[in-house]
């Protein structure tokens, strides 16, 4: 089960599949209910971003080990418009004030590690990790 799994995001329904897959993996790894819910919410956010702004993309799941830590890694990749100003979307209040949800700062708060890279016109990749405590 260490092999990487992937969900294609094209329709809104795919967001649910991504959440489900991520939650199952988190449960198997031994995450508690709160962390499972947090991971699912983060996946939701990443998948919604792809669905709303890029049109389509993929979400990859795998297990990472950094002895003795173990965790779940999620990567959201799209070939959409990319983000011009990452600083702006990472600023608190940018997405929540518009009622758009937790936004990327929210994802960062839900997870332990957060990396983003984006090339305007070429796409965006967000990688997050949650470690088992």
């Amino acid at each position: 089960m260490n092999s990487q799994s992937c969900v294609n995001i094209e329709k809104e329904w795919d967001i649910v599949s991504a959440r489900q897959l991520g939650r199952n993996l988190a449960r198997k790894l031994g995450f508690g209910t709160v962390d499972q819910a947090r991971i699912a919410t983060a996946i939701s956010e990443l998948a919604r971003n792809i669905y709303l702004y890029a049109g389509s993309g993929e979400i990859y799941f795998d297990i990472v080990e950094d002895h003795p830590k173990k965790g779940i890694r999620i990567r959201a990749i799209d070939q959409g418009q990319g983000i011009e100003d990452i600083g702006k979307v990472m600023k608190d209040g940018y997405s929540t004030s518009g009622g758009l949800g937790a936004g990327l700062p929210g994802v960062k708060r839900l997870m332990d590690e957060f990396h983003i890279s984006s090339v305007p016109g070429a796409g965006t990749e967000v990688e997050v990790v949650k470690w088992l405590r």
Partner: peptide, 18 residues
């Protein structure tokens, strides 16, 4: 119930930092 409160937790943290 817990699930529906997760996003509130995120928003709460955000407001605190703001």
């Amino acid at each position: 119930l817990l699930e529906t409160m997760i996003s509130y937790g995120v928003a709460y943290k955000e407001f605190q930092e703001m």
